[in-house]
């Protein structure tokens, strides 16, 4: 019935591949960068890969609204950060974009568009195609997303095999490559290990490898580096920046660490009690905040953060 989902499956996917192949040439990336936007067609503004328009999320059981309208637009290669305390609706908003709102929550208003297609009324089968290949996510608690009784490499290879139709052997090889790309020191060894044999930081990198395995256009990183050691976090931030530049990956970054958001994002949303209290460029929001809640978050960050003892001069 819906021709758009058919398009998602066939036409768009093909177009995507063509686009990505084009992006691989350094010229195209360079042109996009000088144009001040992600890789896009030379004429007009780049079309968004993800667009949330006044998304409202309600609790069906309680009959009340929890998220009171979030709007954001992600173009290829761009990054939007969402900050705010837990319970502010950050994670629900991300889950709405992924179509995985847990019961009894549901989108009660507004729209979510992935690659120009409204996700309302998408069949589960279409979602399966979309997730991983077009939009994927990494959450904070990596252990709960992996199967404890299957070797890590096999779990990644499974994603590669299903999403990209590669042979078993090619998928295994690709799994090791992906583990190397997330800066795991001994990817062959890690690939043959079970989740319980890995530290939290290693598991988180495995999850990131899974998330980027099928070459998504949008990655939602919900506190993805929070549990990592600071040097590993630096590697992951570099990796995400590389992917943005190289493949035009667009990011939604949810983090309690304002410095991580400042580092990665072009635009920032500040949420509180389900409301976006401030939204704008990262520079404006983090360095010239207007809302008192944003000011409070920044003051707390500076009081209980490295900024307490580090001045820009010393860093220079």
């Amino acid at each position: 019935m819906p021709p758009l989902s058919e398009k998602l499956l066939t036409g768009t996917a093909k177009a995507e591949r063509a686009e990505r192949a084009q992006e691989k040439t350094p010229k195209a990336t360079e042109a996009a960068r000088t144009a001040g936007a992600g890789p896009a067609s030379p004429s007009g503004p780049p079309s968004p890969v993800l667009a949330l328009r006044d998304v409202r999320i309600g609790d069906r059981a309680g009959g009340r609204e929890i998220v009171h309208g979030v709007s954001l637009t992600l173009t290829p290669g761009s990054a939007v950060g969402i900050v705010g305390e837990s319970g502010s609706g950050k994670t629900l908003t991300c889950r709405a974009a992924l179509g995985i709102l847990p019961a009894p929550f549901e989108v009660t208003g507004g729209s979510v568009e992935i690659d120009g297609h409204d996700i309302a009324g998408l069949f589960p089968a279409r979602w399966t195609d979309l997730r991983g290949a077009t939009i994927s996510a990494v959450f904070q608690d990596p252990a709960s997303y992996l199967n404890p009784s299957i070797r890590v490499g096999a779990q990644i290879a499974e994603v590669v095999r299903v999403k990209q139709g590669r042979s078993r052997r090619a998928a295994r090889r690709r799994a090791v490559e992906l583990l190397r790309s997330v800066q795991l020191r001994d990817p062959e060894l890690v690939s043959s290990q079970y989740p319980h044999e890995l530290s939290g930081g290693m598991l988180q990198r495995v999850l990131i490898a899974v998330a980027i395995a099928a070459g998504p256009r949008i990655l939602i990183a919900d506190e993805a580096t929070t549990a990592l050691d600071v040097t590993v976090q630096a590697e992951i931030l570099d990796l995400l920046a590389d992917l943005r530049e190289r493949t035009g990956l667009a990011l939604v970054v949810v983090s309690h660490d304002l410095a991580v958001v400042a580092q990665l994002c072009d635009e920032v949303l500040v949420m509180r009690h389900g409301e976006v209290v401030e939204q704008g460029s990262a520079e404006d929001v983090l360095h010239h905040p207007r809302h008192e809640y944003t000011r409070l978050l920044i003051a707390e960050h500076e009081q209980y953060g490295l900024e307490k003892f580090r001045t820009p001069e010393e860093d220079a």
Partner: peptide
């Protein structure tokens, strides 16, 4: 934090971004 002396401390401190500065590059 402000004036780390040991290279490992410098690596740790410089790997963390702050609101005003990017972490050390690769």
């Amino acid at each position: 934090i402000g004036r780390p002396r040991h290279p490992y401390t410098r690596l740790l401190v410089r790997s963390a971004p702050t609101l005003r500065s990017a972490p050390a590059d690769r």
